[in-house]
C-alpha cells in the first residue's frame, strides 16, 4: 500500500483532515488500488467531488482534481466528460451531497448514462457540520437535528440509482475493502454511468450518538449486516430485515452510452450541412 500512496496520493497534503477511525481513508485506499489495477495514466484521470468530508478526497488524489459545490459534482463532471471524453471521470459524493441537495443531478446522471463512475460515501450522517441526520439515516437514530430520534424514512441509494436508469450499480462497505476495489474496477470498466454506493462509518458524529463504542464496532456492524447479493437472493425476505445487499446489484449493456447516442446527433447535423 505504501508504494501506491506514493504513486497516487499528494503526500505533501498529509495528514488528511479525516478523524481517527473514519472510513473515508479505506475508500480512498480501495480507489487508488483500483486505479492501479486499471492501469490508468494519472494525467488521464479526472476526480470530481462535492462538499462535505468525502469532498476532501480530491485534495489528496494526484490526478486532475476539482472540488466543486455542494451537491453539484455530477453537473461539473458532465461538462468535463462531454468536452474531453478520453478522460476517465470519477465523481465522489457523500450521502447528503448525492441524495439530498444533489438528488436531482444524481437521477438525471443515471438516466443519461454518460460514461463516468460515481462513488458515494454513505455514512448515514452529515459529518462535517457535526452530525445532522441525512436522507439515509435510519429511523429512530440520534442526530444533532433529531435529539428525540429520527422520523424520516431513508433512501436506498443503490435502488434509487437502479430505478433512475444507471447501467451499473454496486454496493460495497468500508469493511469489505477488497470487494470495494473490485466493484470500483468493474464500475470504471463498464461503458456507461456506474454507481458504487459505499456503506461507511462515521464514529465521531454517528457512532458516538448511536451506541457504537468504537470504529471497530461499526465495521463489525457492516460485516454482520452486509449480505452478498447472490446469497441474499436465496434468503427468505424476513431474514434480510435490517440488512443490506453488497456486491454487484445491477448491470445492463442494453442502454447506449450517452456520447455514443450523441454521435447520431452530430451525424444528423453534418448530413444537414451537406448541399
Amino acid at each position: 500500500m505504501g508504494e501506491l500512496h506514493e504513486k497516487y496520493l499528494r503526500m505533501n497534503k498529509m495528514p488528511h483532515i479525516w478523524c481517527a477511525g473514519c472510513g473515508n481513508g479505506i475508500i480512498m485506499g480501495a480507489f487508488i488500488t483500483a486505479i492501479d489495477r486499471l492501469g490508468y495514466d494519472k494525467d488521464e484521470v479526472a476526480a470530481v467531488s462535492g462538499i462535505g468530508c468525502s469532498g476532501r478526497i480530491t485534495g489528496y488524489l494526484d490526478f486532475n482534481t476539482i472540488h466543486t459545490t455542494h451537491g453539484r459534482a455530477l453537473a461539473f463532471a458532465t461538462g468535463i466528460k462531454l468536452t474531453k471524453p478520453r478522460l476517465k471521470v470519477f465523481v465522489f459524493m457523500g450521502d447528503g451531497d448525492a441524495v439530498a441537495i444533489g438528488g436531482n443531478h444524481l437521477i438525471h446522471a443515471c438516466r443519461r448514462n454518460l460514461d463516468m463512475t460515481a462513488v458515494i460515501f454513505n455514512n448515514h450522517i452529515y459529518g462535517m457540520t457535526g452530525g445532522q441526520f441525512s436522507p439515509t439515516t435510519f429511523k429512530n437514530k440520534s442526530a444533532t437535528t433529531a435529539p428525540y430520534g429520527t422520523t424520516d424514512p431513508d433512501f436506498d441509494i443503490a435502488q434509487l440509482c437502479i430505478g433512475a436508469g444507471a447501467t451499473y450499480v454496486a454496493r460495497g462497505t468500508s469493511y469489505h475493502a477488497r470487494l470495494l476495489t473490485d466493484l470500483i474496477v468493474k464500475g470504471a470498466e463498464h461503458p456507461g454511468f456506474s454507481v458504487i454506493e459505499v456503506i461507511t462509518h462515521c464514529p465521531v458524529n454517528f457512532g458516538r450518538r448511536n451506541n457504537f463504542e468504537s470504529p471497530a464496532q461499526m465495521l463489525l456492524w457492516q460485516k454482520e449486516h452486509g449480505v452478498a447479493a447472490r446469497k441474499a437472493k436465496a434468503m427468505p425476505l424476513e431474514d434480510m430485515e435490517g440488512k443490506f445487499t453488497i456486491g454487484e446489484l445491477y448491470r445492463s449493456t442494453e442502454i447506449p452510452e450517452y456520447l455514443e447516442e450523441y454521435g447520431r446527433v452530430i451525424q444528423a447535423a453534418n448530413e444537414e450541412k451537406q448541399p
Binding site: 466543486t68 453539484r72 453537473a75 458532465t78 461538462g79 438525471h108
Partner: peptide
C-alpha cells in the same frame, strides 16, 4: 446539453471550461 436545471447548467459549463 439540456440539463435538469439552471444550477446543473452552470456547473456543466464550468466543467467544460476546465478542459479548455
Amino acid at each position: 446539453m439540456q440539463m435538469e436545471d439552471e444550477i446543473a447548467s452552470m456547473g456543466a459549463i464550468i466543467g467544460a471550461s476546465c478542459t479548455g
